[in-house]
Structures are given as C-alpha cells and as structure tokens.
C-alpha cells in the first residue's frame, strides 16, 4: 500500500474506506500550497474529458436530422434548459451554461466513480462543498447585484404579521445559511454511503467465500446487482438534484419576494 500504485491498476483493499484515499501522482506545490496532481485530479480529468468528448461529438455534427449521439446531446441541452426555464424563469437562462456545467461535471464524476478502481471525486466534501459554496456565492452576488438590498427581502416574506416576523426571519436566515451545507453534504454523503455499501457487500462476498461459506456468499453477491443499478440511478439523481436546487436558489436571487 505504500507503493505508488498506478490509479488504474487494481489495489487489493479489504477496507471500505480505502477507495476514498487520495495519493499524489505528480508532486507539485505552489505558493506554499500542496497542489499535487492526485488520483482524484486524474479521475476528475477523465470525467471532464469524457463529458467534453461526448458533448463535443454531439455538437460537432450539426445535422438537421441528428444521429444518436447528436440526439443525446440535444436532449441534454433541452433537458437542462427546460429545467432552468421552468424553475428559475426566462431570466434564469443567463445561468444556463453554469447549471449545465454543474450537472454534467457532477454526473460525469459520479458515473466515472461507478467503475471499479476509479476514484469518485464527488465523494469528498472539499469538492462538493466547494461547488455548493460557488452556487451560493453566485446566488448572493447576483441577488444583491440585481435587487440591491431588496435581496434581503428574501428573509422577510410579505404579508406576515410583525410578531411572527421575529420568529420567521431568524428561521429564514438559518435555512438560507444551511443551504450550502445541505447542498454539498447531500451529494457527498450519497456518493460516500453508496460506495461504502457496494464495497462492504463486495468484501462480504470475498470474506464468506474465503471462509468456505460459498452458499451464503451468493446472498451479498446477488444483492450487489440491484444495488449497483441503484447507485447508477443515485449518480444521475444527485447530479439532477444539485442542478435543480441551484435553479431554485437562482430563482430566489432573481425574484426574492416570493
């Protein structure tokens, strides 16, 4: 385990946490920070290249009658643009490239992470938390740029009697402050828990078979199949939820008085 293992080669690990370990591939530090190119960076590069490759291929064939990949690319486009339009309104389409990138960045990382020996970059709070913070900073920044101090009307809903305001405003502020935490935590926890579960079940299979209980080892082995399918669904769903919540928050920035 102390050997510098190539990222794509199997590492024999019976530890469900081992898959989340980061190790440097190319050491590099700048400005006193350790900015090494790690296995996490490598798999982020892989998912970025795959996503851009897929979408680039889809966009390069600008045919009036699309082939499969172009059709998929166009479906992705309309899927996200419809989501932005229906959630954040026409004005929200300004943020369409950002939401589209968020969705595909997360989806790519989640899906790439589903392959054995790959690293799930979205299973780290640093990554998901940073994405969530960027979303909230954009929401707050645009909200204040667009509405000035009116943006803070978000915390004081209209038509609420004054005594209730004393309770409501702190609650609204707390719920707003919780947004980046829940947004980042949801994705991180889902990815982490899913991968631990898969790994645990896989370890059970090896363990039971190793102990000579082959008949019993079939149970987690068969169970792995639907759970793997479920994890693919979760990979998509969490990317969707992240993008959708981003749109919901952007709507607050555009129209704070709702």
């Amino acid at each position: 385990m102390n050997l510098p293992l190539p990222v794509f080669l199997p590492s024999i690990a019976t530890d469900p946490i081992h898959q989340f370990k980061i190790f440097p591939l190319i050491d590099w530090s700048a400005g006193g920070y350790n900015l090494a190119f790690t296995n996490s960076s490598f798999w982020m590069l892989v998912s970025t290249v795959l996503v851009l490759g897929f979408l680039g291929m889809a966009a390069s064939r600008a045919s009036l009658i699309p082939n499969r990949i172009q059709s998929l690319g166009e479906m992705s486009y309309t899927f996200i643009s419809d989501m932005v339009r229906s959630t954040a309104g026409e004005e929200g389409l300004k943020f369409f490239p950002f939401v589209f990138t968020l969705f595909f960045f997360i989806l790519g990382a989640n899906i790439v992470g589903m392959f054995p020996y790959a690293f799930t970059t979205t299973s780290h709070i640093a990554v998901t938390g940073a994405l969530a913070v960027v979303v909230i900073l954009i929401v707050v920044g645009y909200g204040i740029y667009k509405n000035g101090l009116g943006f803070f009307g978000l915390f004081a809903p209209h038509g609420v009697p004054l005594p209730v305001m004393f309770f409501l405003v702190p609650i609204e502020i707390i719920s707003f402050l919780a947004r980046p935490i829940t947004l980042g935590m949801r994705l991180f926890a889902n990815m982490l828990a899913g991968h631990i579960m898969l790994k645990l079940l896989a370890i059970f299979v090896v363990m039971l078979a190793g102990a000579g209980l082959t008949a019993v080892a079939w149970v987690p082995y068969v169970l792995l199949i639907p759970i793997t399918a479920l994890e693919f669904l979760v990979a998509f769903l969490q990317a969707y939820v992240f993008a959708l919540l981003t749109c919901v928050y952007l709507k607050d920035a555009i129209h704070p008085h709702h």
């Binding site: 090494a36 790690t38 982020m44 590069l45 970025t48 990138t101 595909f104 640093a126």
Partner: peptide, 21 residues
C-alpha cells in the same frame, strides 16, 4: 489534499465551463 482538490476542481470545472459555454 484540500488545496490540491480545490485547485484541480477549479481547473477542470472552469475548463469544462468555458468549453461548454
């Protein structure tokens, strides 16, 4: 690895953002 993660996240996310947009 926080600094490395954030740095490479910024690189790849911005790369993807600009290529897409």
């Amino acid at each position: 690895w926080f600094a490395s993660q954030l740095f490479w996240l910024a690189v790849f996310f911005l790369g993807m953002y600009f290529a897409l947009s």
